[in-house]
């Protein structure tokens, strides 16, 4: 299956490109980017074609990966769906619920796959955690404690017009989606505190503390903060503790690392499975109408609702109910 990547703006571009190249069923058809300078360089690095016009990129593929700035997802996704292409869109699906819903509805109308990139669903330790929960090894889940801290990605991520928001927009959705996937429950209430005081010279939110209640009574929290300084040996991490009636389970989704020290710094090298590859496999299967764990557009909508509620709660200092 030929896949074009639309935009190279997001830091996950390299992961998507390697997944498309590594996956046995996919082939990189080319790259489109509205920043031609950036796009040409990335295309040259990957030895693939660069398209200055999106329609040229769409005409050579069956499916696309959208990897742009958050605020440009809708435009690129809708153009792809109109061209009858299946879409795997970087998270968050959209910067507002109305935008996410427009995209999801359009995909239904055109009968194409619109998937949201939540690679944690394909993270091997997280999949094992799902087994633990499904087999009720810790009894009934009562609570989740989640941490998804990271380094500030800078660039367009700190420009609200392009990102839609800071750390809360960037990092709530991974764990929110993971909790929904693990339990099949929906978030009904959101409380959040947010601020901007960790990264110098930026005004966008870089601190967030979010508490959630699910419709089945599970309580949860998430730390999406950009709290890792530049000297931190890795981009961040995703940790989740599930506490149940008969025990607790600790997930450190990216703990599989070896450390390297030299005279000036410490580096961590991942050795865990490459979940983007398994997500890409699932995307191909989903296009072939097979059942997979891939997050669909409505999962993307649900995660966007949680982010929107978190921003509202942080502003109003009240618990926000999700209808």
């Amino acid at each position: 299956m030929k896949i074009s990547i639309l935009s190279t703006a997001h830091v996950h571009f390299e992961a998507f490109a390697s997944a498309v190249k590594q996956c046995a069923d996919t082939e990189l058809a080319g790259i489109y980017d509205d920043d031609a300078h950036r796009g040409k360089k990335k295309a040259a690095d990957l030895q693939t074609v660069f398209f200055e016009n999106i329609h040229d990129a769409l005409s050579v593929c069956e499916a696309v990966v959208v990897c742009s700035e958050n605020a440009k997802h809708e435009e690129l996704v809708l153009a792809s769906i109109e061209a009858n292409k299946h879409v795997l869109c970087e998270k968050p699906l959209a910067i507002s619920t109305v935008s996410a819903e427009r995209m999801a509805k359009k995909a239904v109308e055109q009968d194409v796959v619109l998937a949201t990139a939540f690679p944690l669903r394909f993270n091997t330790p997280a999949m094992e955690l799902k087994q633990v929960i499904d087999q009720k090894l810790i009894g009934e889940v009562l609570a989740f404690h989640g941490k998804n801290p990271g380094q500030c990605p800078k660039g367009w991520f700190i420009d609200k017009k392009l990102s839609g928001g800071g750390a809360l927009m960037d990092h709530i959705v991974h764990l929110a989606d993971l909790m929904r996937w693990l339990t099949g429950a929906e978030v009904s209430k959101v409380y959040a505190e947010a601020d901007s005081f960790l990264v110098p010279c930026i005004t966008i939110d870089d601190v967030g503390h979010v508490q959630l209640e699910f419709d089945n009574g599970i309580i949860a929290d998430i730390d999406p903060s950009w709290s890792r300084p530049e000297g931190f040996p890795t981009w961040g991490g995703i940790d989740l503790r599930a506490t149940g009636t008969q025990g607790a389970v600790d997930l450190r989704a990216y703990a599989q690392k070896v450390a390297q020290y030299n005279n000036t710094k410490t580096l961590h090298h991942d050795y865990g499975d490459f979940e983007y590859l398994y997500m890409m496999n699932a995307f191909v299967l989903a296009i072939g109408n097979q059942q997979t764990e891939l997050a669909n557009a409505w999962d993307g909508v649900a995660a966007t609702k949680i982010v929107e509620a978190a921003y509202q709660s942080a502003k109003e200092h009240e618990v926000v109910t999700i209808a």
Partner: peptide
């Protein structure tokens, strides 16, 4: 902003844990 987790439901051995971030510090 301080977020706290307290549990009497943890059989992984007693743990006390703190993570404090300030501007450019962790």
């Amino acid at each position: 902003i301080t977020r706290l987790e307290g549990s009497w439901r943890y059989d992984g051995g007693f743990v006390q844990e703190a993570e404090i971030a300030q501007e450019n510090e962790l």
